[in-house]
Amino acid sequence: MTETRPITVALVDDYDVVVIGVANILGQYPDRVVIAEIDTNQPLSDDVDVVLYDSFAQPESDRDEIKVLVDNPRARRVVVYTWNFHPDLIEDAKKQGVHGYLSKSLPASELVAALEAVHAGEVVVTEPPPRARPASGSDWPGRSKGLSDRESEVLALITQGKSNLEIASLCYLSINTVKSYVRSVYRKIGVESRTQAVLWGVENGFKPDHRRIDHWRGGP
């Protein structure tokens, strides 16, 4: 019987807590998945089987970041990991050469199986999920403060200086939905203004830790 080695996966998201959460999910299957990169202070020189792009507080698949990963020869396959299944985003991702478009609601076993299928040469697009809980083991800034993953993402974008209109565009949400999230965030963290929210975000880990996409630019 031929032995198969675990697939190697690099994780791309600017927030350490998000990346570590995804690593924890995949870490339940160490015989099938090895995290090849988690810290941009340790440059990656080898090829990886799959680059998993987590969309938390990141541009979605209709922007340049995905093409940067697809064009890099060190990334054999590129997968988007997201809540957002807008048809235009899925189509844009396919056009850019993405090999997988996976829901953050997938249980660990299904996520690993999808990554293995991508590594084997399939293009995997999971079904658009109903609003569901994140996979067990995932994490995000503000979770301990009672913020949902989507509320946390909105606050992260506010902390990055984005307006409500920019957040709506980035997340493919209606402006009223964004405003609803903003009101909920303000209530939960006890602030009354955007300036206060930004200050709270800076003090509580909502500024990006890295620009992980940067060292994928320009080839190997």
Rank of each mutant, 00 (worst) to 15 (best):
134 P>I: 05
154 V>W: 09
32 R>D: 07
13 D>Q: 08
178 V>L: 02
201 G>K: 02
197 A>Y: 05
211 R>T: 15
117 A>M: 11
164 N>A: 07
106 L>C: 08
159 T>S: 04
179 K>W: 12
145 K>I: 07
70 V>T: 15
209 D>V: 06
151 E>V: 01
6 P>W: 00
121 G>E: 07
91 E>I: 14
1 M>F: 11
55 S>W: 00
205 G>S: 09
138 S>I: 05
15 Y>E: 10
137 G>D: 13
129 P>D: 10
62 D>E: 12
161 G>V: 14
47 D>M: 10
46 D>H: 14
188 K>Q: 15
188 K>A: 08
85 F>Q: 02
92 D>V: 15
21 G>M: 05
181 Y>P: 11
114 A>D: 10
58 Q>P: 00
70 V>F: 04
12 V>Q: 09
152 S>N: 04
48 V>R: 02
208 P>N: 09
215 H>M: 13
98 V>T: 08
102 L>Y: 06
80 V>K: 06
187 R>L: 14
71 D>E: 15
40 T>A: 05
116 E>L: 07
159 T>A: 09
62 D>S: 10
11 L>S: 09
77 R>I: 00
141 P>R: 04
113 A>Y: 06
191 V>C: 12
6 P>F: 02
1 M>T: 09
12 V>G: 05
34 V>Q: 04
50 V>D: 04
54 D>A: 15
215 H>A: 06
183 R>F: 02
37 E>G: 14
65 E>A: 14
106 L>E: 03
45 S>Y: 03
2 T>H: 13
20 I>P: 00
21 G>C: 07
139 D>L: 02
93 A>L: 02
3 E>C: 05
189 I>L: 12
45 S>N: 09
20 I>W: 01
39 D>C: 04
170 L>E: 09
145 K>D: 14
151 E>Q: 15
58 Q>D: 02
103 S>K: 07
194 R>D: 09
189 I>P: 01
214 D>E: 15
70 V>H: 06
63 R>Q: 14
59 P>I: 15
208 P>C: 07
62 D>L: 08
106 L>K: 06
51 V>D: 03
141 P>M: 04
70 V>S: 04
10 A>Q: 04
142 G>Q: 01
175 I>R: 12
181 Y>C: 02
218 G>R: 02
8 T>F: 11
162 K>F: 13
84 N>S: 08
127 E>S: 14
101 Y>R: 04
132 A>M: 15
177 T>V: 02
194 R>L: 14
67 K>W: 13
84 N>F: 03
60 E>Q: 11
186 Y>D: 12
102 L>V: 00
46 D>E: 15
207 K>H: 09
201 G>C: 01
174 S>K: 08
210 H>G: 03
186 Y>A: 15
6 P>Y: 03
82 T>R: 11
113 A>L: 13
114 A>M: 11
18 V>Y: 05
7 I>C: 12
48 V>I: 10
140 W>P: 12
171 C>D: 02
99 H>C: 07
39 D>N: 13
33 V>A: 00
99 H>K: 09
207 K>C: 12
108 A>H: 08
185 V>E: 10
177 T>R: 00
36 A>W: 01
101 Y>T: 00
165 L>G: 07
195 T>N: 11
85 F>M: 03
78 V>E: 11
91 E>Y: 12
79 V>D: 00
215 H>V: 13
85 F>A: 01
139 D>M: 10
140 W>Q: 02
192 E>D: 08
60 E>I: 00
